[in-house]
Amino acid sequence: MDSIQNEEAFIQTESVTFSYGETVPDDVLKGITMQVKKGEFVALLGHNGSGKSTMAKMYNAMLLPSGGTVYAGGMDTKDEALLYEIRRRVGLVLQNPDNQLVASVVEEDVAFGPENLGVPTEEIRRRVDNALKAVEMYEFREFAPHKLSGGQKQRIAIAGIIAMEPDCIVLDEPTAMLDPRGRTEVLRTIHRLNREKGITIVLITHYMDEAIGADRILVMDDGKILTEGSPEQVFSQVELLKQHQLDVPQSTELIYRLRGAGADLPDCVLSVEECVQALERIRPDFSGKQAESTRKGGGDHGTD
């Protein structure tokens, strides 16, 4: 226990390395030291093969590090006696919503976790109802999972984790298989859980837009942490991200290029609204209705 330096840190990794066996020569993780504070919303960015999914499985002891240590809630994930306690406190939501639902009725699926933990019957009922309300899926409690949309299924998967009353939820590319509407639903849900219930969130994704709303962003590349910091800090390093074939949000890139061309614009812009505001400031004649219509019209050009 004494090796935990930071009281506030909920998840802490110390020079974690990992390789998938001796036949695979390269380590997937090459010494990762990081921490996630209690109640924080952290986005873990990286493209395919950067080791971010492997990292996700480290937090709840689905995988154990080959070297280094992972602490979750002060517990060493190598300690087998604590395995179920760790998995209860750190829930993991996977990418494919279809493959993580167990039962053929929504509410029974949500009950699966608490049932495994041996929670008393009435308590399970209460937890399931609360979890379903927390993801706004209470009306669907008697539905069969295959009758739901991808976003709804993913929210049920999240409810299944919430019913175990975890301190932290790790989501491994939860929106990768969803349509834009499903993505918005899921993101809204996890942001609300973070805000209202104070659940620590680790969102693993390769969509830059999803990372904007996080408190802190960690960028992974080739099994290492490339850079970390607030969204502004991370995305202002456009050059570095580009070098590693990572995208930046579109409005950030636009402003970055305009600055490169000599325009007098702020350092880092993340959202579309900020971008419009910044542009309005340097071109007052281009403001108001005109800007509004260009913004809205942007998407329609192809269809007309």
Partner: peptide, 20 residues
């Protein structure tokens, strides 16, 4: 995938399991 999701939700057989 499912086996992993079940393990994530602390499934460890029928021992000590309760029902809703």
């Amino acid at each position: 995938d499912l086996a992993m999701a079940m393990e994530c939700r602390c499934y460890h057989g029928g021992e000590g399991r309760t029902r809703m």
